[in-house]
Design a binder for these strands. Sequence first.
DNA 1: CTTGACTCCCAAAACGTTTTGGAGAATCCT
DNA 2: AGGATTCTCCAAAACGTTTTGGGAGTCAAG
Lengths: 336, 336
Amino acid sequence: MANLKQLAQSLGLSITTVSRALDGYSDVSAATRERVREAAEKAGYRPNASARRLRKQRAELVAVTLPADPGHIGPPHFLDMLSGCAEHLAAFGLNLVIAPVPRGESELEICRRFVDGRRVDAMLLVRTKRRDERVEFLQSRGIPFVTNGRTESPAPHPYIDGDGFAGFRSATLRFHAAGHRRIGHIAGPQEYYFAHVRRMGWQAAMEECGLAPDLCSEGAPTEQGGYMAALELLRQPSRPTALVCATDEMAIGALRALREVEGGYQISIIGHDDLPMGAFTSPPLSTMRMTGENLGASFATLLLRAIAGEPAEQLQELHAIEFVDRDSHRRPPVAA
Amino acid sequence: MANLKQLAQSLGLSITTVSRALDGYSDVSAATRERVREAAEKAGYRPNASARRLRKQRAELVAVTLPADPGHIGPPHFLDMLSGCAEHLAAFGLNLVIAPVPRGESELEICRRFVDGRRVDAMLLVRTKRRDERVEFLQSRGIPFVTNGRTESPAPHPYIDGDGFAGFRSATLRFHAAGHRRIGHIAGPQEYYFAHVRRMGWQAAMEECGLAPDLCSEGAPTEQGGYMAALELLRQPSRPTALVCATDEMAIGALRALREVEGGYQISIIGHDDLPMGAFTSPPLSTMRMTGENLGASFATLLLRAIAGEPAEQLQELHAIEFVDRDSHRRPPVAA
DNA sequence: CTTGACTCCCAAAACGTTTTGGAGAATCCT
DNA sequence: AGGATTCTCCAAAACGTTTTGGGAGTCAAG
């Protein structure tokens, strides 16, 4: 309600003194400090955020860009993540603003608007591409940022990512150990880093086992994309006995394809993300997920450290992938 | 990058003129206006947001509080809603900041922080209670806001809500028409408006049919809460042949309870929310959902109109509930 | 008595924008 | 020609805070 000026006037003090008293500076006597604090409390005084931001040259805001593409947002608990991140940031005086991409605008323009308008102190990027123009822009501007997912940018930048390569490699090896020899991969769009690295993991495992990595089909990272890609693999003369899918959403689409094809129910399948609904599919969907808890807080910590100026190399987290054992990966290795 | 002052200097104009030229005022000649615009474009000039906000006495921000309680956030597409809302707001120069509730703090304190610190021009509230202290606070401060869900506040306020009463009443009547006579209700916490009004809808239908509304059990709005509540109803001497559940999450918990009880698979069930995973349960969960598309944009529009000063009475949307026909409501009306 | 250190306070500047209230020149009307 | 009107432009104020650079006053040491 009140103003610093009004508060000072009512106390017979200068604006300076009141401001410094509230900030706990030592050059105001303990008695005055207490008096000021009480008055501020009683008046319900809160400093005007815009004024402080202008003066301190800090926006006290962090933006997260939400991709509007199909395929939703990757992680299932994305909102929880955002919420955790915002909560952690708030403890340090930062608020999280969400920056959706309006129709007809690029994510780059959003970044530009936020950064050049001094609207934010840092940014959080999700769904990175292998070559990500947002990353390049932010690096050129020198503004702190953290990505969810790596990129192939030559300059290092802070990120949190799951080790998709290792996860998909070991999932493939698991199928091989179970006797599978025709292991297919349902890949996401290869411009996305996560999709590419998952495919590389599958491919590496295949080659390690002396198998040709040719049963691969790419689709949109959606239920429909997985469905189409699976159908294509099932049309092959020698169709796969097991499928490693880039995402759970795609895996669920693939399950639908399997149901529509003779003997399809005999094909093993595994996804990635641990979507809640995976527990309800038939068969229940085996999957993988990134380890680590309270991811939101991790993002927030990295953002704060990036703002504090820590070098990017110290702000990179690669999390292990863990296997979620349900039932869909347990089909016999030999197709009908 | 650049400053209004620097830009003016480089053009040999005053700050005033540059500012007015960019804002398209008529008291700067077309030639100058164009010259300024070009220079601004070339310099990549964006007005400093904090400065403008301070001067215009507007925060250009809207906050949405995220409840941290169990039971998640009600609607399944909540993130999509937020995204749509943010996108629509952005078209009018407003950004959406998310305000999670830190542990140990009340939602009221959050509101206070945002409102009294002049951090926002308006607020968006979700998960209203019948008597909601946030609503009372915001009304007392006279700051514009819109709620997702009604309240029992004596003074009207803008809201968007589904007509839970009608939805649950007609779901109950549908069961009655199908021959059911023992229709139970799994209720959410009655302090929430949505939970209360849904129970009232069920109760009204029961009384219309001349049935006693005694098969009701309340639980937390979670899978576990629904499970527990269902078990309690199933322990009754004369157990229900159909269940109307306050939320899909609770309904899924109830389904689990039904599986664990002899003859439980014969009991009909319906939920509310249209969670994606409802399509995958067995049996697939019949449910209801609020009609209306691009809810986020509706919220944004209401917020903008509230900020513009329209009276609350004109800013209330009650949406019809539509039935989503899957399979779980089609069990025989007579229990084993 | 002078000096220096210390304590407590304050006036003024600064942050970058928008807006107010004109000023000077040109144009129009009579 | 004289006055009114229009067209361009600008200096200065304002928004509310934080920070800079002291300024009195007190006290102890020299």
